[in-house]
Design a protein around this nucleic acid. Structure first.
Lengths: 182, 182
DNA sequence: ACCTGAACACCGTTCAAGT
DNA sequence: ACCTGAACACCGTTCAAGT
């Protein structure tokens, strides 16, 4: 058997577990999906998951990386004439994973894998929004604080599964109050 | 034995369980405290808790009502010259229960007791902040949206256990941007 | 009415045994 | 290296039995 066949197989099995976990976690939430059910969906024995992942949290962290890197790339590729439209489109996209956001903040405290992913994600989101605000001409001294406010507002909209109508009202009001040309 | 002795006893035992749960939940979080440990702290058998509460979520909901009604009363009694000081003082107080906030948002989906408490709490907080903003002279048309933004920002500060310094920068910037006399 | 010991159906995880 | 059956130590909750 060729030497390069093994890594291929391993990667495939790994990805199958992640695919099953992604679908189940996004649909039903982290706590509602047991390792046994996840294993069944991936067509393996429950303990086989531990050959590929340290624990359940590491599966979650991988799913999160998976999901959000797609949204991240989509954001970078997206081109909207108005900032408000881009922001709303991004919030609407992230709603897909809204069921996992509170779980991340809860498990942060016990799982270092989740902790690391969370901190990393916030750093990336901060850089992205910070950059966006500076382009829009926000005062240098206020950029950091306003970035945090925008992130917390987005998180709030996601956590509370806000309707598109409410999201619009919130984002529009916020950007307008910040005297940005929306 | 007098007829009015029973309800007294029952209330006492009930309160002992809540007191034990409050201390443990605030210190270690909801998931980290098992019913067995809670029962031990209250000096009873694990299943005895179910004589007083429907399930673990109902214990949590009771603790939340307990904790936040204190903060609520304290807020109403508080008298600060500047709105920014009152807001910061309130946020600092709520940090006591920050460990439970994400848990509430997670368990919302499965527990109706938590769901009801959460919706009620948001309604109260909305009314409070809405009233505060109108006193400060915010445009009628924007009050609702700005109220939500403020609530989401406060929740964000709590969820991420922000330092007092960051809390100050965020709140100050937000109130200033809203053209309020802070 | 109140409390409990024992049991139930699960959970995430580990480990020795297989290939 | 990869996978599993069986077991482990827990979990929240239920129930029959006690007072």
């Amino acid at each position: 058997m060729a030497k390069n066949k093994r890594p291929q197989d391993r990667q495939e099995k790994h990805d199958e577990i992640v695919a099953a976990a992604r679908s189940l976690f996004l649909d039903e939430g982290f706590d509602a999906v047991s390792m046994a059910r996840l294993a069944a969906a991936a067509g393996i024995a429950p303990n086989t998951i531990y050959w590929y992942f340290k624990d359940k949290d590491e599966v979650l962290a991988t799913v999160l990386s998976n999901v959000f890197s797609e949204h991240w790339l989509a954001y970078l590729a997206a081109d909207f004439p108005k900032p408000i439209d881009k922001l709303l489109w991004f919030v609407a996209r992230l709603q897909e994973a809204s069921i996992l956001i509170s779980t991340v903040h809860t498990r942060l405290r016990t799982s270092s894998a989740i902790h690391i992913w969370h901190d990393n994600f916030h750093l990336m989101l901060e850089a992205l929004i910070c950059n966006e605000l500076m382009t829009l001409g926000v005062l240098e001294a206020d950029v950091d604080a306003l970035t945090t406010i925008l992130i917390f507002t987005i998180e709030g909209l996601l956590i509370h599964q806000s309707s598109e109508a409410l999201s619009y009202r919130i984002c529009e009001t916020l950007l307008r109050q910040l005297k940005l040309n929306i």
